[in-house]
Amino acid sequence: MQYMCLIYSTEGVGPQPGTPEFGAFMKGYADFGGIIQKAGKFIADDALQPVATATTVSVRDGNVDTTDGPFAETKEQLGGYYLLDCDDLDEALKYAAMIPSAAHGRVEVRPVMIFD
């Protein structure tokens, strides 16, 4: 099973660059990366540029509508993701809870659809 762990948090909340907390926070991510690599769960991960860089596209009746900004204007934004290979939801939730941003934001865990 592949699980997408989507990391949502409010920009500007949580450890900020230039503070001592930020170093520990980034080390948390480095440690987590090591754990999932070693456990063989890692497939892919990325961090995203701030939400101000987002553009949303939709197509209605053949017309492409491009708007500035993310899909939903909420405080918590998608900031990054991990794609993990886990045996079941419990295992995926275990790793998702280790993602440092889960401490101030949220991590949404979604099974990946397999087309066969």
Partner: peptide, 14 residues
């Protein structure tokens, strides 16, 4: 079924 919620007795930590 889709999220693969296991049919297991959870690990001792859970």
């Amino acid at each position: 079924a889709l999220a693969a919620i296991p049919y297991e007795i959870p690990d001792s930590d859970l």
